[in-house]
Amino acid sequence: MSIWERMSKVDRRIIYLLLSLVVIIPIVFRIPSTIAVSESAQMAYDAVDRLPAGTPIIFSTDFDPASMPELRPMMTAVLRHAFKKKLKVIMMGHWPTGIPLSTIILEEVAQEFKAEYGVDYINIGYRPGAGLVMIQMGREIRSVFDIDIQGNPLDSLPMMRQVHNYSDIGLIACFEAGAMGDIWVIYAWGRFGVNIIMGTTAVVTPDAYPYLAARQIEGLIGGMAGAAAYEKLVEHPDKAMIRMSSQAWAHILIIVFIIIGNIGYFMMRRAERIKKRGTV
C-alpha cells in the first residue's frame, strides 16, 4: 500500500483514538477557548433583554435527552437571563420525553435565583397535538393547559391570573431538536404574530436561518457554539463554554483528516493517470 493510499484510507480506529484524545484533553486540563458571540445569538439575547420585568415568557421543550449536550446548556443560560430580568417563566413542551428533563433544568435555575413556584415560574408540561395546541393557546391557554404539571388549576397560580393567550406573552423561547420550531413559526408567528427566539441543535440550525433572515424569529442560538455565546452574554460561564475547547480541537482534527484524505485521493488519481499514459 502506497503512502497516498494509506492517507486516503486511514484506519477508523486511529480516527476514533485521536478524536477521543482531542475531546478528553481539553476537558481534563480545562483548556480555555475564545468564544465569539454570533450576531444571531446576540439578537436572541437582545430579544429577551428588551422585555420589561414581569413579562411572561414561554419556554418550549421540544427535545429529548438525546440532544441534551447542546440544548441543556442553552436552555439553562436563557433561563438564567429570564430569571435575572425577573420575567415570569412558563415552561411547557411538545416532546413528552423532554418534560422530565426541562423540569430538572427549571428547578435548578429557579433555586439558584430563589424564584417561587406559581409566582415567578410555572411548569405546564405537555399536551398532544403540537399545531392544534399552539392555535388553541392563541385563544386561551386554559383550553389546552387547564392544570399545571403538579395538577394545580392555572387560575390558582398568581402569575397566571392575567395570562390568557399570546397577547399576554412577551416572547416564546423554543428549544428544538426537530421540526417543532417550524410549527411554532408557522402557527404561532404566522397566525398570532407572537415574537419567537429559537435555540436549536446544530443539525437544525441551517434550516432555521431562513426564518431569521425573514425576521420571522427574533434570534437564533445555534448548537453548542450558540449556547457558549449565550453563557458569555449572561456572564455565567458553564458547561457550553467549557466544552467549546474540545469542540474547536475536534473540528481542527476533522479538517486535518479531510485535507489528508483529499491529498491521498488526488495523488492516487494522478499516479493512476501517469500509469495509464505509460501503458498507452
Binding site: 475531546v23 476537558i27 449536550p69 447542546e70 466544552r243 469542540q247
Partner: peptide, 10 residues
C-alpha cells in the same frame, strides 16, 4: 458534524 461532536463531548 458539529452536532455529533457536541454529543460525544457531552
Amino acid at each position: 458534524v458539529m452536532a455529533r461532536i457536541s454529543l460525544l463531548i457531552g
